[in-house]
Structures are given as structure tokens and as C-alpha cells.
Amino acid sequence: MKISPSPPAPLPQGEGSQIPPYQSPPLPLPAGEGRTVSPVSTRSWGEGDAHLTDDIVWAALAEVMDPEIPVLSLVDLGVIRAVYLAGDQVTVTMTPTFSGCPALVEMQRLIKERLQALGASEATVNVVLAPPWSSDWINAEGRRKLKAFGLAPPPVHGGDVQIMLFDTVTCPRCDSDDVTVRNTFGSTLCRAIYYCNRCQDAFEQFKPL
């Protein structure tokens, strides 16, 4: 893989700082394992309450698709971090992917709509920055769907942000690793543009983050 004619300069590090240097994000959790056990409701069940459970809510969220990659659900993407149930009131905690991603607002709207359709009397979406979303959180199913969609899945980097930029990328069509990066920026914030020398055609990669 050819990246550039000259290697990039070393990155400024945190050494010598009064404040401790950068810590790698915590090891990623696959979607689902980030699930939090919902607190037992102290409310008494009355007539008309929807009998929502953790599993029902997670299954519903698995049907809400990423607006920019419509084959990938928000659960596959790993942005749903926790679901809290209090009777028929649902609170979902999510993390944004890229900071400037315009799909964030749309995702919140889609989650609320889906939860209301499910019978939630109140649907709240909390957006949290920590721990920061990592492309490592895209689950195996999500990676399979990305490839089928024509987007090369991001390499799993375990939080090592230096290595992730140089990892091998394979063509989603022919699996060749004889590829050339054309642009580390693409049609959306989460995509890079590659060229497959075997297919002799361009393809996009979901960028590691």
C-alpha cells in the first residue's frame, strides 16, 4: 500500500507535560456487550403500559439504520452504548462517530421515532462523548454488511491510532491487498478513497477511528 511520497512527520506527543499525556481509549466493547442491565422499575405496572424489555428495545434499535450507510444498523455501528428502562420510559445512551458527522441529529430522531412506535411513553436519547466511539466497535455483522455494500471495513486497531493509518486494506470486491490509497478523505467524514490495482477500479473504505 502506497500512502505518500514521504513519511509524515512525527506527531507531537504528551511527554514533559504537567498534565499526564494522552491515554489510549479503553479497549472497545462489541455492541451488545456494552449493554447495561436496566434498573428495576419502582413503578407499579398499570393498564396501558407497554411491556417493554431490554431485549425488545435492543432488537428495535437493531432495525434503525445509519442514514449514510443504510445497510448498517446503529447497533452494528456500535454507537448505542446503553439502554435504560423505567416502565415504558426508555433512555438510550449513544456516542457520536466523527465529531462533525451531520448524521448524529438524524440518528437521534430515528431512535426516538422507533422507540415511540414501540410504545415508549417517553423516549430520551443522551449523547455522550466518553468513552469515545471507535471504529473497533463495529461488530462482525456490521463488517460483513459493509463489505457487501462495497465499503472496505476498517482494520481493528485496538486504540493504537498511529498504526491504524498504515494497516492493510483489502478490496471489498476481490479481496486483493494490491491497493493504493487515493485520498484519506472521502465523500463523507467516515470514508477514504482507495484504488484496487487488480479490479482497476476505485473503492471506498470506512476509515479507522
Binding site: 494522552y22 462523548l129 469515545p132
Partner: peptide, 20 residues
């Protein structure tokens, strides 16, 4: 890199998010 260790947690969280 330094703000990631800030005693002001919201700034630390933001810094870690942006750095990559």
C-alpha cells in the same frame, strides 16, 4: 494530548474524542 489528562473531565473527554 495534554487536555486528555485535564482535571476538568468534560474537556478531557472532548480532547480524547477529537485527537484521533
Amino acid at each position: 494530548a495534554r487536555l486528555a489528562g485535564s482535571a476538568y473531565q468534560p474537556a478531557a473527554d472532548a480532547a480524547v474524542r477529537m485527537r484521533n
